[in-house]
Amino acid sequence: MTAPVPRRPLGTVLTRPAVVLLAGLWVAGPLLPLAVQAFTDQWFYPDLLPARWSLSGWRQALGPQSGLAEAVATSIGIGVAVAACATVLGTAAGRALAWHRLPGRRLMELVLLTPVLVPPFAVAMGAQIVYLRAGLADSVTGVVLAQLPAAAAYTTLLMSGVWAGVDPALERQGRTLGAGPWRAFREISLPRLHGGLVVAAMFAFLVSWSDYLMTLLIGGGVVTTVPLLLFATAAGSGNQAATAAIALVAVVPPLLLTALAARQLAGGDTALLGVGR
C-alpha cells in the first residue's frame, strides 16, 4: 500500500510565483511610479498616462543649475570618509567587545547604542553652536564628524558579531610562531574579517548617504548632499519629473550596494536597523 503524503501541519501553502510577486509589489510598488514620473513632461490629472514622455525632468535634474553632479560628489566624498572612519572605529571596538573583558561593559554598550536610540536631531541642534565655535559648521569636515557617531555605533554592533566568529586562539598561535600583535592581526584575523568589513563599510556609507537633518543643521545649507537637493526640489520646485529623476539617482547606490552584498548579509543583522535612517 502506498501511503498518501500527510497534509502540511500548519497554514496554507503559497506558491513560489505568488510569494515573489507579492514581495516584489511591496518593495517596488512606490518605486516604480518614480521611474515612470521621471520620464514625463505634461501629465495632467486625471489622465492615466502622461500626455507626453520626455527627458526634460532628467535634463533639469542633470543640468548645470541643478547642482546634482556636485551633490553626488559631495555625498560620495562624505560617505567614503564616514565609512572609512566608522569601519576602523567599529573594527577596533568590536574586537574589544567580542574578545576582551571590559570593566563596565554594559554601560559601554549602552553608550555605544545611544546614537541608535536617541533621535539624532536632538543632538544636532545642540551641537550646531559647538561646531560653529570650533569653525567646523558649514564644512564637509563638520558634517563627517556629525554623521560619525551613528555610523560608528552600527559598525561596532556589526563588527562585534563578526569578531565573535573568529577564533582568538588562531592569533595566539600566530604569536607563538613569532608574529607581532599587528602582524598577527593583519595576516591571521584580517582575512577572516573581510566579508564583515565590506558590509560594515557599506552600512556606514549608507547611513551617511541617507542622512538629511544632521547635514542640514551642521552643513548649514552650504554643504549640499543628494538628500538636501532632493528635499529642496521635492518641497520647493513642484517639478515632479525632476524630483523623481533625482530620487532615482539617489536610490541607485543603496540598491546596488545591497544587491552586491546580499550574499554577505546574514538575515538578522542588527546593523540593518541603521541603514536608510
Binding site: R8, G11, V19, V20, G24, S210, T258
Partner: peptide, 22 residues
C-alpha cells in the same frame, strides 16, 4: 509555510531596507 520563493522574497525585502526614508 511557502513551498518556494522564500529566498527571493527575503532578498527583495532586504533590497528595500537601505532605501532612504526621504
Amino acid at each position: 509555510r511557502t513551498s518556494g520563493g522564500r529566498r527571493t522574497a527575503t532578498f527583495l525585502a532586504q533590497l528595500g531596507l537601505p532605501v532612504p526614508h526621504l
